[in-house]
């Protein structure tokens, strides 16, 4: 292995810890914790990129550092770009978590409502040949459609109450 490319053990351990903690947080329900997990993993990935550039050196400016002692500027540029992107996305997710809290009083990432409904529907539909006899075919479907429409409408009403500008 090229001795130039042997990474510092401290950095490698730090990357491992950041990724582990980040994955743990990503698996949480609360959007804020998920966001913290994303920030940790993002920083871990940035460190990984830094390690990918090889050993550390002087500032990569011609005339200040001799060429052989320069550190790799390309990885620094890429890390910088990634930091900017992470910053913007963190701000966005924070705004989303805040909005979720405003609407629901919590910022938990919910299950797919529609999927749950379909699963319920399937469970209730299983003995559907029994339903046919009591002369009410289709009532279940009607209920389901009504439930969905109410849900959608409820959301918009709530938006109006909070007086958010459109």
């Amino acid at each position: 292995m090229n001795p130039e490319m042997v990474p510092s053990a401290v950095l490698v351990v730090a990357i491992g810890v950041l990724f582990t903690a980040g994955v743990y947080l990503l698996l949480e329900r609360s959007l804020t914790r998920v966001l913290l997990g994303f920030v940790l993993i993002g920083n871990g990935a940035n460190l990984l990129m830094l390690v990918a550039g090889g050993r550390a050196g002087g500032a990569p400016i011609a005339g200040i550092t001799p060429e052989a002692e320069m550190s790799d500027p390309l990885v620094q540029v890429m890390v910088l770009t990634s930091i900017v992107i992470t910053l913007a996305l963190t701000a966005f997710v924070l705004a989303m978590a805040y909005r979720s809290w405003q609407l629901n009083g919590h910022d938990e990432v919910a299950d797919d409502v529609e999927d749950r409904r379909i699963a319920r529907l399937a469970a209730r539909n299983a003995p559907s040949y029994l339903d046919r006899d009591d002369g009410e075919p289709g009532t279940l479907d009607e209920d389901a459609a009504a439930a969905r429409d109410d849900m959608v409408r409820g959301d918009t009403d709530r938006t109006d109450e909070t007086g958010e500008a459109r």
């Binding site: 989303m96 909005r99 609407l103 629901n104 409820g154 959301d155 918009t156 709530r158 938006t159």
Partner: peptide, 12 residues
């Protein structure tokens, strides 16, 4: 628009 349904779906 930030409606509840969109925030929920958007989070995922």
């Amino acid at each position: 628009g930030g409606t509840g349904e969109r925030i929920r779906a958007g989070a995922v």
